[in-house]
Design a protein around this nucleic acid. Sequence first.
DNA 1: GCGATACAATTGACTACGCAAGCAATAGTA
DNA 2: TACTATTGCTTGCGTAGTCAATTGTATCGC
Lengths: 158, 158
Amino acid sequence: MSSQVLREQAPAVEAWIKLIRGQSAAVKAVNAQLVADHGLTVNDFECMLLLARAEERQMRRVDLAEQLILTASGITRLLDGLEQEGWVDRAACASDRRVTYAVLTDDGLVKLREASKSHVADLRAFFEARYTNEELEQLAELLGRLTTDAPELDCSVD
Amino acid sequence: MSSQVLREQAPAVEAWIKLIRGQSAAVKAVNAQLVADHGLTVNDFECMLLLARAEERQMRRVDLAEQLILTASGITRLLDGLEQEGWVDRAACASDRRVTYAVLTDDGLVKLREASKSHVADLRAFFEARYTNEELEQLAELLGRLTTDAPELDCSVD
DNA sequence: GCGATACAATTGACTACGCAAGCAATAGTA
DNA sequence: TACTATTGCTTGCGTAGTCAATTGTATCGC
């Protein structure tokens, strides 16, 4: 029984495997550090970062979900945790009463800033040990094409 | 209270964000298809693929864990499922009785082959819609550097 | 050969999600 | 105006994975 076909590697398959392995390895390393140092998961951090950058430090849950590539229920649960810690609060929307905004509190901003210091340093250490700046830009450009369903994360020039 | 620091984007940070978003989006798409068509998760598939390619279609659990970037307990649970379906079996190791091999069964190989057809097609469709072959090789090369801790099953002196 | 240490694997308890169902509120249509 | 989607959000339940503790086996120093 020949397994020949199982050994073929289209470039797409090669890239796919390296993508899932590489991301797992990177997330495992970076997340462990972030949890150990600040008690935040990667998504906690990214969520607060999106809020910090948003107009009035608030966003609709649906928009958070889209940006973070999570489902609506995933966002509800993620925010549950951040609300309990007091880093995020709720606010009603005057023009659409279905909407509940998630708002980054002052405490949340402080926490985010504090966590940013070591987290960004960790990230840079991890990536800059493996790539030049030029390669990082190349990598970012290539990876950016994967989210052609989900929109741009660079919002607002403020 | 200025958020200035929160807007800085070192290339490493940019690449990091695109990595986690991009992988989420890609996995969500590909995995949904694989589950719908064959009742397999991406890790189920990758695990069986590793076994199919291994010497005698068998591997130590510890080595599977390393390759798949999962913990030992994650592997135990993943294999639990595959064993129940009859796609993977257990085998004792004569020289080290701590070890239990995971062995791909004939049924497992059949299942894997069958799933490969559409899965590889899905993968290629997803990636080749976004990249040229040259870009895929570039991407694979770059992503490969992320696992400089985990890869290569050299181990055993035998 | 014997004790300390390391390693392979499993288990229980927990977390972080996803999915499907459901409830309000809004928007589109007549 | 009423009627039917559609949208935003939450909840119950299920799944995939982690961590810490445990068991059994190997290996190393002596």
